[in-house]
Design a protein around this nucleic acid. Sequence first.
DNA 1: AGAATTTAATGCGAAATGGTACAAAATATG
DNA 2: CATATTTTGTACCATTTCGCATTAAATTCT
Lengths: 208, 208
Amino acid sequence: MVQNMKDEKKRGRPRAFDAKAALGKARDVFWDRGFAAASLDNLSAATNLNRPSLYGAFGDKEDLYLDTLEGYRQDGMDVLTEALDPSLPLRDNIARVYAGALAIYLHGETAARGCLLIGTASVEAVQHERIREVLGRSLNDFDDEIEKRMRLAVDRGELPRGADPQMLARLASAVMHSLAVRARAGDSRETLEAIARSGVELICGSAP
Amino acid sequence: MVQNMKDEKKRGRPRAFDAKAALGKARDVFWDRGFAAASLDNLSAATNLNRPSLYGAFGDKEDLYLDTLEGYRQDGMDVLTEALDPSLPLRDNIARVYAGALAIYLHGETAARGCLLIGTASVEAVQHERIREVLGRSLNDFDDEIEKRMRLAVDRGELPRGADPQMLARLASAVMHSLAVRARAGDSRETLEAIARSGVELICGSAP
DNA sequence: AGAATTTAATGCGAAATGGTACAAAATATG
DNA sequence: CATATTTTGTACCATTTCGCATTAAATTCT
C-alpha cells in the first residue's frame, strides 16, 4: 500500500495521472452524491480515469471512499489545529473553528455541501462498519483537539476552574455538527454565521 | 391523493394491507440503509408488498421516501411538544427533549440508527430539492417549537430578560443534531447521555 | 535489443435496479 | 348476473451497476 515517497524509478509503465488530484475529484463526487449514489461512471468521468485504472490505484468503491474520508479528516484536522492557535484568546479560537468549518461547508455557492463526513458517511455508518469506524474516530479526534485547548484555557484561567474541558469541547463540536447539517439542509450563510456567533458566546460565555 | 377518511366503500378490489403499517416497515428500511441504498426489493420484502402494489399505493421510490420522512417529522413533533410541557421547568423540558430523542436514536440496541432525517435525508439534500426542502422545514419546525418555549421562559423569568430565545433554541437543537450524528457514529449511550446532561446545563445554565 | 513489469483502454458480463405490462382476482354498482 | 373498477401477482424489460478479462502501450532491468 505504501508507495515510493520519491520518484525512485519504478519498473513498468508509469502512471499518467496524479493520484492525489484524482482523489480530490473523487471527493467532490462523493461530497455531492454520497457514497451509495456515486457510481463508478461518475467517479471515472470526474477523475478522467477509466474504471480499471481507478480500481488498480485505489481498490473498489468503498476503498476509494474510505481514502477520500481519510484525506478529508486530515485536512480538517489541519484547519482545526491552525484555528486553535494557543497564542490567541479562546473566543477567537472557537470563532475561527466555526469560520473555517463554514468556509468548507458553504463551498460552491450554489448548493452547500456541508461536511463530507457528517453529510455522507453518516448514512453508511449503520451498515458499513469500516465507515462507521472512520466517522467515529474522526469525530473523536476533533473533540480531543478542542478539548486540549479547553484544558489549556482552564489552566490559564480563561475558563473558570470548575469548567469541564471534555464536555465544553463536545458541546463546541456539537455546534459545528449542527452547522454541517444545517448547511446541507439549505440554511443561509447569514443564519449559520449567527448560530456560530451565538455558539461562541454560549461556550465561551465566561471567558474574557 | 387524499384518501377516504372513513371506510366509505370504494369500488374495486379492496387493499389487502395497512398502508400505515407498510409505511412503518419502509421507514425502517430507509433508516438502516438510506434512500439511495434502499432497493425496491428491500422495501418490497420488508413491507410484504410486491413492487406494483408499492408503486400503486405510494408512487415511486422518492415519493415513498418523502412519505416516510413526513410521517417521521410528524411523530417527532409530537414527541417534542409533549416533552416541552410548559407546566414543567425549562430544565426538565430540555432534558426530556434529549431523552426522547435518544430513545429514538438508540432504538435497536444493536447499531444505533440516529435520526432518520439527519442521518439519511442529509445526503440526498444536495441533489434532491424536495428532500432538502423537507429536511430544512423539519429542522426549522423543531427550532420554532423550542423557541416558543424559550420565549415563554423569558416571559416567566426562568431565563434572564436579555436572553435570545431564537438563538437559545437553535443551540438547544444543535445539541440534538450532534446526538443524532454521534449515535450513528457509534457513540455509547453513556457518552450521549453525558452530552445531553451537559447540554442542558449549558443552555439552561441561568435557569433555576 | 529483448524480457519483465506495470499501467492504459476497450469492452464484456453477470447481477441488480427501478419501473411497468398484463392478466387474474376481488369488490361495488346497475 | 353483468359490468366497471381497483388491487394483486407474475413476469418482464431496458438500463445501470460494479467489477474484471484481455490486449495494447510504456517504461525498467539484463
